[in-house]
């Protein structure tokens, strides 16, 4: 076979492979949306789930997912910001930094089920929080910290060093330079990182099964006192999220319309993740244009 022929054949094979991958994604999305969207209605999104009869919705699970997402970001964002600043501004090039970087990397590569079990052991059992939103949010924080830290570090590093020199030459300390000059400049990158991590948190289930629990008690949406057990804001109540709900109804199989409900819930989950991706792509850029008045 001459080289030209081999080149042609290889090129067409590569076209085939790339086409196949696009096809797989199209089939996945198409399947979920075509099967799921007919079940998604306002009623489906707002009514509570039913365990033994058909026609239940995912209202409480949807609320739990968003509430858990909010709490997790509230806890993990400040810590990641501090850690990201340390890694990009204060870390010296020595063995301590190497050890710290290695441990961040290890934390990010741990299977989420192990992180969930650790959260179960510490928060649910030792601290006696029980299956609760708080336990779930803390476990998800562990899961989210290394990824968010790294993306914040990267966006801080992308700011040119001349910006810092300008700050120092004005007599600002390093900390002031970071908080007044570097971080504001890096806001679009940080925002993109936060939104992408929000997508991951939203779909995570393995870390939540044994921390936030697998039950969703009825909520009273007129009661906004966080100390009340029926209040949606109470962080100590068990809270099954949308992703956990899909897993649970499929592996228990007592709900008569389990496959319809999980198709609908999957469609909602996918749409949420698509929205997060879209926001991350365009939100960061739009914000950058707005705060820097550049094109």
């Amino acid at each position: 076979m001459n080289p030209k022929k081999a080149d042609k054949i290889a090129t067409s094979i590569l076209y085939g492979i790339a086409g196949f991958v696009v096809l797989v994604l199209a089939a996945l999305l198409g399947y979920i949306l075509v099967r799921g969207l007919p079940h998604v209605s306002w009623q489906f999104l707002t009514t509570p789930a039913k365990s033994f009869s058909s026609g239940g919705g995912v209202g409480i699970q949807l609320f739990n997912s968003f509430y858990l997402l909010l709490l997790t970001l509230l806890i993990s964002f400040p810590i990641s910001l501090g850690a990201g600043i340390w890694l990009s501004e204060y870390a010296k090039n020595n063995w301590v930094t190497t050890v710290i970087r290695t441990s961040v990397e290890i934390l990010s590569s741990l299977p989420s089920v192990v992180v969930g079990l650790f959260g179960f052991l510490i928060f649910v059992v030792q601290f006696n929080f029980g299956f609760s939103i708080l336990s779930g949010a803390l476990a998800l924080t562990f899961f989210n910290l290394p990824l968010l830290t790294r993306s914040i570090e990267e966006s801080l590093r992308a700011i040119p060093y001349s910006q810092r020199e300008a700050g120092f030459s004005l007599g600002l300390s390093r900390w002031e330079t970071v908080t007044r000059v570097v971080v504001p400049d890096a806001v679009p990158g940080i925002l993109t990182g936060v939104i992408l991590s929000a997508g991951r948190i939203f779909g995570e289930a393995a870390a939540l099964i044994y921390t936030a629990g697998q039950s969703a008690p009825a909520l009273d949406f007129t009661n906004w006192n966080p100390a009340n057990i029926a209040s949606p804001l109470n962080p100590m109540r068990p809270a099954e999220t949308l992703a956990v709900h899909i897993w649970k109804i499929n592996s228990e199989g007592i709900m008569p319309d389990a496959s319809a409900v999980s198709a609908g819930a999957s469609a909602v989950l996918i749409i949420a993740v698509l929205l997060f991706n879209f926001l991350a792509r365009f939100g960061g850029k739009a914000l950058y244009r707005k705060i820097t008045s550049s094109k």
């Binding site: 991958v21 779909g203 956990v244 899909i246 991706n277």
Partner: peptide
């Protein structure tokens, strides 16, 4: 396409698998 595939939650993959 690859970014989207990374973002799809694992339970959704499980449900499609099932």
């Amino acid at each position: 396409v690859t970014e989207l595939l990374v973002g799809i939650p694992s339970v959704v993959y499980g449900f499609i698998g099932l």
